[in-house]
């Protein structure tokens, strides 16, 4: 028994130390966003870095005065929600067609989807950049949305979920004479909430942080999303760390709120990426 208590205490000690290390940079940002700009760097080397003396909202006001934060936020919200919503429709339909319908070319096309799954965005970013330049799509919303709607991994996740659903679900609807699409909407979708939630969260997480692609295809601030805006804001003189951290806090708050509210689904989503293995 005493051996067990020692083990527990060591485990707790290790967890607490690890947790402090993991949380410190985030606390640093939250505390810094509430401090006068010059104090952020000055106090970075002491425990005061994680604790504001006073609560000052000035940095937040400064962000709005210096850049069009609202615009970036709307851009990010619009681009991400379009990709999530349209992506759910397009990829779930494809996943359903591959999992449950008989059609010519299905198996070979599905093999194609599985092959495409290993191509990372980075490997095609350059030719895609050239392609959309030819289309005349640079500096638009469409160039940040359209290429990311169809997603091989999302199709795969839908496929594996749908293939596990009992056949009886559809048969009853078919006997009533419902069309394939109607059966999908009224019978399959209501029984597949977990996979829709998983795909939605994974897509949201990926797209909310998208940096490389917007960097390549946007030059003006009109359609620029937050991840790109925070890096340009950081290099916008004068260097004021309080403002930068306030920008960061506002930028991450939507994700953090969604994460804390739907944590169970985040966990499932991440675990789903591990199913492949």
């Amino acid at each position: 028994m005493p051996h067990n208590i020692v083990l527990r205490l060591t485990s707790y000690a290790a967890l607490v130390v690890a947790a402090l290390l993991f949380v410190a940079p985030l606390l640093f940002m939250f505390a810094g966003s509430l401090k006068p700009d010059d104090q952020v760097l000055l106090e970075a080397g002491s425990w005061r870095a994680f604790l504001p003396d006073t609560i000052a909202w000035q940095n937040y006001l400064d962000v709005f005065a210096r850049v069009r934060f609202g615009r970036y936020l709307m851009n990010s919200l619009f681009i991400t929600s379009m990709i999530v919503a349209a992506g759910l429709i397009v990829n779930s339909l494809a996943g359903y067609a591959f999992a449950r319908l008989q059609w010519t070319g299905r198996d070979i096309l599905f093999a194609g989807v599985l092959t495409i799954m290993i191509v990372p965005l980075e490997a095609i970013a350059v030719p895609l950049f050239y392609q959309v330049t030819l289309f005349g799509w640079r500096d638009t919303y469409i160039v940040q949305i359209l290429p990311f709607l169809a997603n091989a991994f999302s199709i795969y996740l839908f496929y594996t979920f749908f293939i596990g659903l009992p056949r009886e679900l559809e048969e009853a609807a078919r006997i009533d004479g419902a069309s394939v699409l109607r059966t999908f909407v009224s019978v399959i979708v209501p029984n597949s909430k977990p996979v829709f939630a998983t795909v939605a969260i994974l897509t949201f997480l990926m797209q909310w942080g998208a940096f490389l692609w917007p960097l390549m295809v946007t030059s003006g601030e009109a359609v620029r999303p937050l991840p790109l805006a925070v890096s340009t804001f950081h290099s916008l003189p004068p260097l004021q760390w309080g403002d930068i951290f306030a920008f960061g806090v506002m930028m991450v708050s939507p994700v953090l709120i969604v994460f804390l509210l739907f944590q169970r689904w985040f966990v499932r989503g991440v675990v789903a990426t591990g199913i492949k293995g």
Binding site: L93, A97, Q102, L109, I116, V119, Y130, Q131
Partner: peptide, 26 residues
């Protein structure tokens, strides 16, 4: 069903073709 399956998968397949397969070949 033969046609329906292809139709349902078509938007996603088109997206993957234009924005992944073609750039890759490019």
């Amino acid at each position: 069903q033969r046609l329906t399956g292809l139709l349902l998968a078509a938007p996603a397949l088109l997206g993957l073709l234009v924005f992944v397969a073609i750039p890759f070949l490019l």
